[in-house]
Design a protein around this nucleic acid. Structure first.
Lengths: 174, 174
DNA sequence: ATAGCGACAATCCACAGTAGAAGGTCGAGG
DNA sequence: CCTCGACCTTCTACTGTGGATTGTCGCTAT
C-alpha cells in the first residue's frame, strides 16, 4: 500500500482492467492496439507497473493459467485511483523525431544520403496513413466518439507529415 | 575510452560543440532553442552525457570559468563519432500525447471536465503556432535550408493539431 | 504418435529520459 | 553593502526503451 502517485501508463492499465481481468501479455497487446499510436509502452514496463500495483492493492492476482499466465483483476482501490488519475489535467505532449534531428545537422551529411533518409521515412508515413484510413472506413459499426476522435488525430497528423514531406525543397529530396 | 554506441542526445551535443566550446548550461540552452521542438532533453541528461563523453575522450574539459562553469571542447575522436552517428538511418518518431490518453478514457469523465482539458490544450497549440509563424517571418536573413525545414514541420504540425481540435464533435467540446 | 515450430508468457538488465530538489556563486542595481 | 535573480552543477528517484533469456503450450506435418 505504498503511497506513490499513479503514472499515466499504470493508469491506462487500470483503465483496461475495468473491462475484464487480464494478464500482462494481454494488457501489453491491448495497450499497443488501443493507445499505441499516441502512447508508447513496452512489455517490460507493463510487468513492472503490474507488480507495483499488485503490491499497492490496486489490482489482485487471479489464478494462474497455462504458461505462467498470471491474470490480474482491478480492485475497488484501483478503480478509485484510476478515477482520480483520469481527472488530472493532461500535460503537454512530447515528440521525439530522429529524422528532424538528423535533418537539422544536415550540413554534416552528403545530400543524397539525407535524401534517402527522407524518402524512406516518407514511405513509412504514407503506409501508416493508409492503415488509419482503412481503419476509419471500417469503423462505422463502432460509433465510439472517443475512439473516433483519437483516430482522427492520427489521420490529421499523418496527412500533415506527408504534406510537409512534399513541401520540402528539391535540394533536400534530390 | 569505453565502447558504447553514441546516443542521439549525446550526438547532438557533439554537433553543437562543432561550433565552439560550451558548458553544460550553454549546451542545454542551445539544445532547447535549436532542437527542443522535436527533441526533448533535460539538464540532468546533458551533464550525464558530458561526463561520459569526457571519459570516453570525445570531448575535453577546458579551464573552469566563474561559478563552477566547466566548458568542454570537442576532440577529433568526438568529431569522428559524430560523423559516424549522423550517417545512421534515423528511427521512427515517438509521440506521447497525454490529452489523447485522457480522451480515449473519456467515458470515465464528466463531459465538461473533458471539454475544459480540450479547450486549454487548444490554447497552448494556438500560441505555439503563432510563435512559430513569427519566427518563420523573421527568418529571411537566415537562409538555412535545414532550419527552415524543421521549422516548417513545426508549423505544419501545429496547424494540423488546431484543425483537429476544430473538427471535434460538439459533444466533446461542450 | 511425435517432433518441431511458432505463438504465448514472464523476467531481467542496461541504458536513456524526466522531474525536481539541493547547493552554491557571481554580478548588477538599489 | 546587500540582496535578488541569473547562472551552474550535482544528485536522486522514477519512468521509459530495447533486447536477451527462459520456458511452455498447442498445432501441424510427417
Amino acid at each position: 500500500m505504498v503511497e506513490r502517485r499513479l503514472n499515466a501508463t499504470a493508469a491506462s492499465l487500470l483503465g483496461f482492467l475495468h473491462w475484464e481481468p487480464m494478464s500482462g501479455w494481454d494488457l501489453a497487446a491491448t495497450a499497443e492496439h488501443v493507445i499505441g499510436d499516441f502512447w508508447s509502452l513496452t512489455r517490460s514496463q507493463v510487468y513492472r507497473e503490474l507488480a507495483w500495483m499488485a503490491d499497492a492493492g490496486l489490482i489482485e492476482r487471479g489464478e494462474q493459467g497455462p504458461r505462467e499466465r498470471q491474470p490480474y483483476a482491478i480492485t475497488d482501490a484501483g478503480r478509485a485511483a484510476f478515477a482520480e488519475w483520469v481527472r488530472q489535467e493532461p500535460g503537454p505532449e512530447t515528440i521525439r523525431f530522429p529524422l528532424l534531428l538528423t535533418l537539422s545537422f544536415g550540413r554534416h551529411l552528403p545530400p543524397d544520403l539525407l535524401a534517402g533518409f527522407i524518402a524512406r521515412q516518407r514511405e513509412v508515413h504514407a503506409r501508416r496513413l493508409t492503415e488509419y484510413e482503412a481503419h476509419a472506413a471500417s469503423n462505422e459499426a463502432g460509433r465510439d466518439v472517443f475512439r473516433e476522435a483519437t483516430l482522427a488525430f492520427g489521420i490529421a497528423y499523418e496527412r500533415a507529415v506527408l504534406a510537409w514531406f512534399d513541401s520540402l525543397p528539391a535540394e533536400l529530396t534530390r
